[in-house]
Design a protein around this nucleic acid. Structure first.
Length: 457
RNA sequence: GGCGCGAUAGCAAAGCGGUUAUGCACCGGAUUGCAAAUCCGUGUAGGUGGGUUCGACUCCCGCUCGCGCCUCCA
């Protein structure tokens, strides 16, 4: 039985889908005005893993990950860059697709864009107005009346009276209450806008997810995920809007992944301490990054440093080394056998990927000891469920993501040829000199029964 | 001020009321021309003070420290 930690209940709960055998899941994706950073990588990889495990568990999954392609930051960035909003967002959507693909993230079933859902947003706002939860300000904005929605704060554990709106940011004087948030912003001169019953304007921050979620998955669906920083106010407001408009429960299970940190501080755009995915991929294999993310539990903080990535790379090499030594027999996973059983237990326990990885390493040890193609096959198949160990071991071990200036495979092979000749005439000092030369260039030689192999350190 | 989370061996990171987590690094041995890889062996880790218990890293309470949210953020 799959258990999921539900942020709404603050505890692990048995997962029971609304419709037996199928799952509807929505994850807050990117706002596309810049390159994806490591925090985005974590959401991408974590929910890709969740989606894969749900499917592996035999459930039919409808996975939606949205793209927010209209908001204040996008407008500002396009203006600063002197390009159109469309050009800007298209460009960064392409980059996001590239980054996600590199990390082995499968395409969601739907990737709706906010700008394609304006009518649905307007309909939601209309309902909220009809239900007495929305009002128009003197300035022309449509706002949500937080205090008129009972239960506001249930996701983030906040009580309306404890929220200190305006403590850190100036209060907008046109609101009825400082806690109210905007559903529809009236257009200022020069800003993009859509016509609406409340005048020309554009969507507020939260309404797009309520609209896309309910349009694609229904008013009530199973799982909603995203980064922990979205829990408040974004997800809290999504609940208020959706339940306020539809008058029914919005989401059963809320999942939030932990932050990526740098030097024990949250990695964020405002702190400026973020690393983009493509920046990291210049030095590290994308699978190393994926493994680095998955070897920690998704709810724990994940501290980033190159040292930790190096560590992850070594660990992943051990797995690939086992597969290199023993050809994996292609076979379905035997769920009755101990490794698979333990793997499933770990994953069913709120997606405990660190424990699942431990199973992988123990399996690798077995493979090394027994040289068993069957076990190697299980290792490969189980890891595949996490989107790991999908490549040729040789290709992984000889890959050169670190920098462009590295010695080429052809040069390495040539030197190995020379060394083999030296060894044949028992000129070991010449052989060792070549090995040391290669070692300096970051190449490790492995003399074996079948000849000399190599890999990058 | 309100709410919440965490503290595990050199580093990273899990489960678990009593039995080896796991990985990296380190050390000894096997293997190797020497290595690498692999295998075998070695680690009395669980912030601190109490309590519950036959027994606690694991449950309860206090304390200390760290972090997050209450503002845009994945």
């Amino acid at each position: 039985m799959l258990k999921i930690y539900n942020s709404l209940a603050r505890e692990k709960q048995n997962f029971v889908p609304i419709t037996p055998g199928s799952v509807r899941m929505y994850v807050c994706g990117m706002t596309v005005y810049d390159y994806c950073h490591l925090g985005h990588a974590r959401v991408l990889v974590v929910f890709d893993m969740v989606q894969r495990w749900l499917r592996a568990s035999g459930l039919e999954v409808n996975y939606v990950r949205n793209i927010t392609d209209i908001d204040d930051k996008i407008i500002k960035r396009a203006f600063d860059n002197k390009e159109s909003i469309g050009e800007l967002t298209e460009r960064f959507i392409r980059c996001m697709d590239e980054d996600a693909a590199a990390l082995g993230v499968e395409k969601p079933d739907h990737e709706p864009r906010a700008t394609a859902y304006i009518p649905q947003m307007l309909e939601l706002i209309r309902r909220l107005e009809a239900n007495g939860l929305a009002y128009q300000t003197a300035a022309g904005d449509m706002n949500f009346s937080v205090r008129k929605f009972p239960g506001y704060g249930k996701l983030s554990g906040k009580s309306v009276d404890d929220l200190r709106a305006g403590e850190r940011v100036d209060v907008d004087g046109t609101k009825d209450d400082p806690l109210d948030f905007v559903l529809w912003k009236h257009a200022k001169p020069g800003e993009p806008f859509w016509p609406s019953p409340w005048g020309n304007g554009r969507p507020g921050w939260h309404i797009e997810c309520s609209a896309m979620g309910s349009d694609l998955l229904g008013k009530h669906f199973d799982i909603h995920g995203g980064g922990q920083d979205l829990q408040f106010p974004h997800h809290e407001n999504e609940i208020a809007q959706s339940e306020g408009a539809h008058r029914c429960r919005f989401v059963n299970y809320w999942m939030h992944n932990g932050f990526v940190r740098v030097d024990d501080e949250k990695m964020s755009k405002s702190l400026g301490n973020f690393f983009t995915i493509r920046e990291i991929l210049k030095k590290y294999d994308p699978e190393v990054l994926r493994f680095f993310i998955l070897r920690a539990h998704y709810r724990s903080p994940l501290n980033y440093s190159e040292g930790h990535l190096d560590d992850a790379r070594q660990a992943l090499s051990r797995l690939y080394t086992a597969l290199k030594a023993v050809p994996a027999e292609v076979a379905p996973i035997d769920w009755n056998q101990s490794p698979a059983l333990r793997f499933r237990q770990a994953m069913d326990d709120d997606f405990n990927t660190p424990e699942a990885c431990a199973v992988l390493f123990e399996l690798a040890g077995e493979v090394n000891r027994n040289q068993s193609p069957v076990l190697a096959g299980q290792l490969r198949a189980l890891a595949g469920l996490l989107g790991l160990l999908t490549r040729d071991p040789q290709v992984f071990l000889q890959a050169t993501p670190r920098n462009e200036g590295e010695i080429s495979a052809a040069d390495i092979e040539a030197l190995i040829g020379q060394r083999v000749a030296a060894k044949q005439r028992k000129d070991y000092s010449a052989a060792d000199r070549i090995r040391n030369e290669l070692a300096t260039a970051g190449v490790i030689l492995e003399d074996g029964a079948k000849g000399t192999g190599w890999r990058r350190a």
